[in-house]
Design a protein around this nucleic acid. Structure first.
Lengths: 141, 141
DNA sequence: ATGTCTGCAAATCCTTTGCATTTTA
DNA sequence: TAAAATGCAAAGGATTTGCAGACAT
């Protein structure tokens, strides 16, 4: 984890910029998201925080706050459940998610520029996109 | 609607192939999906079928059956609600969805090949992807 | 005739909200 | 100490499930 500390501090700065308070649950959550740079569900993050550590509602509320502050991205999935990951602006990428074991790997490229151009030509602004690939991984096959 | 009748019949054939029965609700649903080739929520489809025509549960059950039969695709959205659209194998495309009015337009290209190649190189099979763009349309701005 | 599909009601899952209490700045 | 964040309980919305009756093959 080379720059995980840097990413943690940068997330804290984003909180300050938005006049959001730096609380224990928030620090713990950010630490998780920074360390494991892959997407998790609210429930998973809650479990990772340890049993009875913080309320699941607090996790949800903070993930929402983080999302509004641009600190995390929400990824809607096939199952209807959202995943959250640290927003790495410098480095935009997507994932391949195994349908069976939910193992997730980064795909270190994004080819959506052309589509975003099309959309902006149609008059849309503030364009974002959701792109995730699904498949069955080697061990599950 | 040039080949909408053809698409309707081809969907019926898929049902037969899967030994699914051809019922009134299914015909009505397929007709909707074929005519309007854009994604709708289960609720929207239920309303479009007319008040009290068929039960919302029936819509859900059939959309799931259609999905398993490869007749429709499920699109998870930012709001956590799923949209469904006819699976047009010949013609793969994506959408730009307005965050405010939910107006939806086709973007007639797909650039995800490179990512799918990456994923298959990682050992994944049966690869699919979900890609939708979100923005704010001209009239909502 | 038999297994499938439907409708209704109730359950479930994920997520959000209300309110009293605690914590941060 | 004032505003914001938390925990608990309860509500909410979307989707699923159970079961008896209706329908397609």
């Amino acid at each position: 984890m080379p720059n995980s500390e840097h990413r943690f501090n940068s997330a804290l700065n984003s909180l300050k910029k938005e006049r959001l308070r730096i609380t224990e649950p928030r620090k713990a959550l950010l630490q998780l998201l920074v360390d494991q740079s892959k997407p998790f569900s609210a429930e998973e993050l809650h479990e990772m925080l340890g049993p009875g550590a913080f309320d699941l509602v607090t996790v949800y509320r903070n993930l929402e706050a983080f999302e509004n502050a641009g600190i995390v991205n929400r990824i809607p999935t096939e199952s209807g459940k959202s995943l959250f990951e640290l927003n790495a602006e410098q480095h935009h990428y997507h994932h391949i998610i195994c349908r069976k074991c939910h193992r997730t790997e980064k795909l270190d490229t994004c080819e959506v520029k052309k589509l975003e151009k099309l959309a902006s030509d149609l008059g849309y602004s503030e364009i974002t996109h959701v792109l995730e690939l699904y498949g069955v991984c080697e061990t599950c096959r």
